[in-house]
Design a protein around this nucleic acid. Sequence first.
DNA 1: GCCAATCAGGACAAGTTTCGCCCTCATTAG
DNA 2: CTAATGAGGGCGAAACTTGTCCTGATTGGC
Lengths: 320, 320
Amino acid sequence: MYSPTMRLLTVLELLQSYEEMSGPELARRLEVDVRTVRRYILTLQDMGIPVEAERGPGGAYRLERGRRLPPLLYSDAEAVAITLGLLGIREFHFPVDVAAVEGALAKTERVLPENLLHQVRSLQEAITFNFSRYGSPPPAILDSDFIVTLSSAVHQRQRVYMRYRSFSGEESQRDYDPYGIVFNEGYWYTAGFCHTRQDLRTFRVDRMLALELIDEHFERPADFDVLNHVLTSVAFIPGAQAVEVVLKTSIERAREHIPPIMGTLEESGEDVIFRRTASQLDWIAHVLLGADFPVFVKQPDELRDLLREMAAKALQMAGG
Amino acid sequence: MYSPTMRLLTVLELLQSYEEMSGPELARRLEVDVRTVRRYILTLQDMGIPVEAERGPGGAYRLERGRRLPPLLYSDAEAVAITLGLLGIREFHFPVDVAAVEGALAKTERVLPENLLHQVRSLQEAITFNFSRYGSPPPAILDSDFIVTLSSAVHQRQRVYMRYRSFSGEESQRDYDPYGIVFNEGYWYTAGFCHTRQDLRTFRVDRMLALELIDEHFERPADFDVLNHVLTSVAFIPGAQAVEVVLKTSIERAREHIPPIMGTLEESGEDVIFRRTASQLDWIAHVLLGADFPVFVKQPDELRDLLREMAAKALQMAGG
DNA sequence: GCCAATCAGGACAAGTTTCGCCCTCATTAG
DNA sequence: CTAATGAGGGCGAAACTTGTCCTGATTGGC
């Protein structure tokens, strides 16, 4: 029961649980000489586990990150947490290598004590997740490499080359500066700057066909709100109508009311001009309708028509 | 380098990676006698790790679940998966003991090789999650025990006693048969049968004050759609305005246009009635305006007024 | 500057364990 | 019945572990 192996593992466990522990303390806990503890440390190091030491009073051993993973000694509760996390990854289509998730799950569940397994199973059975917008198709199988690459590009501000199949099925390729990644209602999106279109764009990661890092760096606007941009884009679906609207208010109030991602705002005499391009005009119409200052549409005519239709419809609804 | 401890861990690793492995095979891999392998197995068993064996041709050792967790030996990819899973738990307010999540994260991240840690950090930094409906308050801190207890009750069809603080702040207590648990837009819900109200009810788990299993069992309707029930209930937030609208179309087309999250649809003669409660009427107005079939508001008057205002505004915008 | 606490590690002897090799037996699929 | 597997006793040589002494190195605090 008190084999050297056991004591060695205990050292490892103690170092994993407390971030650091001194030699004498370890010796006391293992009921063993300090010299032996030092030998254990040596053995661990020989096994490739990087135990580092600080000398002097208050000095202690601590586990550093190394090239390889040491055996991990988790408590029961921690194992349950790990299992549920892995199940969550599976459920949410997290961008993680499927084989790794299955492997980790298999290893963990196989040795999980009976009562803990019951707990996990109960949760698994009882819980339903709502994402993947009720009724919408499930996302295409996601190549987790894409998100890993994207996140690395976001992190290092590195441009990427991308091939993409759009909603309508047409393929395109472009250079793209990813500003961030968003998980929304079961789908993974990325928002950033598209160099082909020279504009901000949102893409669905499961529609990407190829992705490569390019050896070029970009600057990211400091205050870019990725989540907001994606949510807006998801509502819009990009298109190509030039919209130009006069806002009868100050630039400050206009900014308050119209988020920067909606389009551009420009002062013009006493007014403010709002511009953007879109094919889905009704979202724009809705945002503009919410303004508490006068607004006049300059173009396109389609937006005017839409507003008139909406007015007629609203009156019909209200008066019926 | 080839200490007995090392070999013992290798046995453990092999048994964790492959679900079973015969003595001769292990002996070959460890470059050790079969007799020694048997001794290793004995040692593992002495350490409390339940290694079981099948005899006869094709027989092998296999790791069973035991009373305690053995040291776990994961691959790099698996460790990344575990870390991301744990981060997901934290982000999504999964019903798991916070201390356990933090402990497991600390243990794992502390020893994660540098390059893998970078990967994890990049993902963590780059990804934004959208739940907790843009702008709505974050859920109250969740006592994970409640969901564990609930899930166990769901699993065993066991009634619970519950104290609850409703949306409006009033406390109540009731006996409740939980049919399931749903995660929706950042909040945890449970739906089931409330014995006090003698009706189906949905509760937010973070609003529960106390929860106890009762020694009584219930039958659960076989075809109960927990997700659907919760989504519908969420649409009907009590205390807000009751909205009732006639849609001049078939139930099928109405369903296409109005997601179940919005509210309920009910056939009425040739029409469809849409109902929900809401405090934010303009969102509803917008959705209804987008319909390509006639719509008439029955109540509330505030929605009619809002529509008239919108009409006036739209005409102003279009006509300017 | 000195002290005390910590880590680092050599040397050695006594004690303990491990390992391979022998053996016999139990179990089980074919 | 046979062959392949696990279970395990016994033995002796070899290897390892441990405690006890050392001597140093490093470092924080007084």
